[in-house]
Every structure is written in structure tokens, then in C-alpha cells.
Design a protein around this nucleic acid. Structure first.
Lengths: 215, 215
DNA sequence: TTGAAATTCAAACGGGCGTTTGAAGCGAAA
DNA sequence: TTTCGCTTCAAACGCCCGTTTGAATTTCAA
């Protein structure tokens, strides 16, 4: 793995182990955060040896970096939400599309939801690994949110106002995805099926568009 | 401490040690969360012996419970934000007052800010101790937020709509307080002085009241 | 001043953590 | 079939964790 003049392709079993470790690590880090997620639990879930993490990724940190890479790529890929797609819609349509897309993990308990949970952990106490990752460019959710709010705000808005509004919009869907488990229990008891998701998109879009005063 | 027939009042030094431990624990738990905050660091900050935590509070868990008690009491006390005070204001005034009060920790780096950070940790992965604390009643920030949004929403709104709107409002100031440190750095570089706080209140109140479309 | 209770203290315990180690297993090229 | 490098494996290492222990010290009523 370390020799520059290595010719042999990685064997199948290498890729299998690596993939299993990354998948297990994604689940564990999403559940317990970086500090709280242990290598022992990850390797146990991946049915791999403890030392495999150090062998394949150089350590817990390297494995986490791999998970973050997959996470950022999942958000970067155009299939998720395209910037041009937002521009083609009406401002209202772009807003609804944005909210809908970032609320999807509520009903699709998929990979993306795990990534969002990892980001939630990082929002409380960023790890150095994570900080290095987002240092290059703001997370996609912020860039897309800025694109949406700029459709509404006048050209001459101060950059501070734009930032306030962008953050205000971006955190709205993140909150519901992050807190989904808690909101499912009393005293809130919110169950998110497809219909509830649509109603949530409606409510948030209405509030974001016209505010409380519209009611 | 454990005998039922104990008559003697707690000595001064007991209260001093207890208070120092609670203060140090508040800072440490706010910084690192419950799991991440170590008894060794707490006792070191409080200039107390490691065993003091177990002697005075029965263990790390008991000390944390004491911190949470102080935190919830700080939010419950009327001086912070009174429900009747909200009702006496106009809907718009109540909204502004609510936002201002819960954004205050941005400029007053005080005890309340530490409590909010502890709640932020708990929002990602609630500890059993914390869950037991809020099981009895929803946190005050939610109850007050519901009071505010009910001023705007029509009587016949579904409880789900009220809950959506309440959560939507409640999380707005929490986000900025929780992320204050991150937002102070690039790429956001938001510095929160008294003036910036007022502008943030203005922006959020405007967005919450009339939405993006008003711009 | 005395003596018992309350409090502090240094040291140790058991356990989980990430990582290292060196031998064993494995597969493909020779 | 032999050989050699890649991969796996069980075991151990050193570290930090929360807690326990029992003796030393302090406190304060009698």
C-alpha cells in the first residue's frame, strides 16, 4: 500500500474490507460522533480485524477522512441538487425544491441522513479532520441556500444581511433532520411519512416566503 | 452526607467545594459534552480532589444533574423571559423580544451561553440524565416559542402546523448561539457586538414576520 | 482540649480506548 | 509447487477514563 513502485492492483478482498469499514464507520460516526465512535465497534460491524483500520487507512482519523470524503461528494454530486436547476425555477419553486431536497432524509433513512448526522456532530464540536475538509469551501448546503435567498434579496443588500438570511434558511431543514429521532417521541410525537414531509415543506416554505404575519 | 439522622449542617467548606465543582463542570461540559468532559479536568479546574465528585455528588452523573438543574432553573426564572410579559406585547413585539432574549448569549458570554451549549450537545445525542430532566415538561424555549407563534396562527390551525411553526421559530436563535464560534471564523467571519446583535434581531424578525418575499 | 464526624487526599483498580506487533494465512507469479 | 508480498489475525502496549479505598486531615460540638 505504501510502495510507490507497487504494480499489483489492489486485490478484491482489499476493496471489500475497505468498503465494509467505510460503511460501518459511517453508521457508527453518525450514531456516536467521531470521538464517541470506537474502532472496536466499527471493525466488529464490518466483521474485520481491529488492526484493519490502521492497515488500510493509517488509523481512525484516516478512516474518518474517507467517510467525510464520501459525504461531501454525495452533497457535491449534481444528482442531489443542481445549482443551475435552482436557477431555472421561480424563486418560490427554488425555495420549495431546496427545502424538499434537504428534508428528504426524514423519510429516506439513507446514507445522506447519516452524513447529515455526522455534520450535526461536527456542528457542536468540529474535529480537526472536518475543519480541514470544509476550510477550502463552504459546505454545499450553504452555497445553495445563498443562491436561493439571493433570488429574493435586493441587489444592494449588505453581505451581512445575505449571510444572516442564508444561514437562517440553511439551518431550517438541517434542524428537522438532525432532531428527527427526538421529534418522533413525546412531547412532539411527529411521524414523518411522505405526506407529513410534504406538509412540512408547505409549512416551512410558507413561513420562509411570507413569514408568520401571513397567517 | 448519607446518614438520615444527620443533624449537622453542611460546613462552609462543603458548599465552597460543591460550588466550585458545579462551576467547573458547567464550563467543561459546555466545552466537551457530558461524555467528553472528564472528571479529572473538572476537579483540576475546581482545584479539588478527584474523589470529591464522588463524595459530594455520588459520581459524574450526579454532578451533571446538578448542572442541568441550575441550567433549567436559569431558563425557568421569570427574570429571563416572562410568559405574561410576552402576552402584554404586540405579536411583533413579542417576536422581537423572544429573538432578542435568546440571542443575548451572543454578546453576553455568560453562564446562559454555557447552558445553551450543553443543550446543543444534548440535542445531538441526549444523555439519559438529560432525558429524565426534560421528560416532565418541554424545555422553556419551546413553550415560549409556541406562545409567540400562537399569536400569529389562526385558532383553527392543526396542532401539527403549530408544532412545525413553533420548532421553526425556536431553533432560529439557538442555531446562531450554538454556532457562534464557527460563524466568527471564515468563510462567514461574523463578529457579534451589540450592534450586530440588533441587526441580527432585525433580520430574523423581518424574515420570521414577513418572510423572504417581503424583500 | 478532646473525640467523633466530615472532608480531603494520593494511590490504585478495572475497563475501554487507539495503536503496534509479529506471526499466520492467502493468492498469484515464477 | 515454490516463493513472495499482501492481508488478516490475536495479543499486547500504553494511555485515559470513572470510581473505590483507606488513611490523613480538618472541623466543630461537647
Amino acid at each position: 500500500m505504501s510502495n510507490l513502485d507497487q504494480v499489483r492492483v489492489a486485490s478484491r478482498s482489499t476493496e471489500v474490507t475497505r468498503a465494509a469499514l467505510i460503511k460501518a464507520a459511517t453508521a457508527v460516526f453518525a450514531e456516536y460522533g467521531y470521538d464517541g465512535g470506537s474502532v472496536r465497534l466499527i471493525t466488529q460491524k464490518a466483521m474485520a480485524n481491529q488492526a484493519a483500520v490502521n492497515y488500510h487507512f493509517g488509523g481512525k482519523d484516516g478512516l474518518y477522512r474517507e467517510v467525510l470524503l464520501a459525504a461531501t461528494q454525495a452533497f457535491e454530486e449534481n444528482a442531489f441538487l443542481d445549482a443551475e436547476e435552482l436557477d431555472a425555477l421561480s424563486p418560490e419553486g427554488a425555495l420549495r425544491r431546496y427545502l424538499h431536497q434537504f428534508l428528504l432524509p426524514l423519510v429516506k433513512r439513507d446514507r445522506v441522513c447519516r452524513y447529515l448526522r455526522i455534520f450535526a456532530w461536527e456542528s457542536v464540536k468540529p474535529s480537526e479532520t472536518f475543519s480541514a475538509f470544509i476550510a477550502q469551501s463552504p459546505p454545499r448546503i450553504f452555497r445553495l441556500a445563498e443562491r436561493v435567498v439571493r433570488r429574493f434579496l435586493p441587489q444592494e443588500s449588505s453581505s451581512e444581511t445575505v449571510t444572516f438570511a442564508m444561514l437562517w434558511l440553511a439551518q431550517q431543514p438541517m434542524f428537522f433532520v438532525r432532531e428527527a429521532e427526538r421529534l418522533a417521541k413525546p412531547p412532539f410525537s411527529l411521524k414523518f411519512d411522505d405526506d407529513a414531509l410534504e406538509r412540512l415543506v408547505d409549512t416551512l416554505a410558507g413561513l420562509s416566503l411570507r413569514g408568520l404575519a401571513a397567517f
